[in-house]
Amino acid sequence: MTLTVEHTTMPVLGRLPIHSSRAEQVAHIAEVARQIRIQDLKLVHHAGAGHIGGDFSAIDILATLYGAVLDITPDTVTDHERDRFILSKGHVAGALYTTLAAFGFLPVEELATFLKPESALNGHPNRRKVAGVEANTGPLGHGLPVAVGHALSAKLDVSLRRTYVLVGDGELQEGSNWEAMMAASQYQLDRLTVIVDRNRLQQGATTKETNDLDPLPDKAMAFGFAVVEVNGHDHGELLDVLSAVPFRPGKPTFVIAHTHKGHPISFMSNNVAWHHRVPDAAEFRQALTELEAVGRPRYDREPS
């Protein structure tokens, strides 16, 4: 199946000017997130593979980070002093590629190559092939240690650059995360922020049924983190929390973003079947209709 132009028509919305009001920023992020979901839905449907459930639980977090939090632009993507974002749950690569395209790091047309032979857009991200990817993730439990290493490098440099890492909640069952959290706390890496995509579902079951993580906030606190819980689909909450770190001097931050896999599609949301199911033609049309029905926010000024 080939992708036509119609399937890669996402506008590059970019970021708003830095002096935009919070309301403008939030509205803008919401619209970018909606566009990313539409594009990601097309991506997965036409590639016939992907992890749409996890993509949709993480997209609001990604859109907020790239839209208004991270100090990275397509022009500064190799700057030593850029903020770093590491996607530890590498299987939502589709969401990352689409987000990078929405903010101009990746040509939108390139999304049409997703998972195709020789494409730079592999099922898991490759920093050697895609600008904006910081680490080649995919096996779980790798991103957090890498993020700790980067945060340590910033501390050695006496630099203010920040490190953000997005981990899945099921992923926290990997012990390497907890090794890294101990080190982050020992080295007082307060410019490191761990964001947990807390959708409470893993590949085939709930986290509770599998290897329950709760009480997750208590565990993170016991490992020396300042812990904040947010609605992971509320762009205002995400923006406020992710731009306000650190909350406690000397302590790394642990943001538990409560999300739903497949959000906000009626038949996908919070449904374990959509971990890596691919929508058929009817499901694709319905999901698209639902996403297009969400009202476009109005802008007082053009995005930059």
Binding site: H80, A135, L144, V146, A147, A154
Partner: peptide
Amino acid sequence: GVASGLANGG
């Protein structure tokens, strides 16, 4: 993993 992150930071 930390070593990889340190390398990312130069």
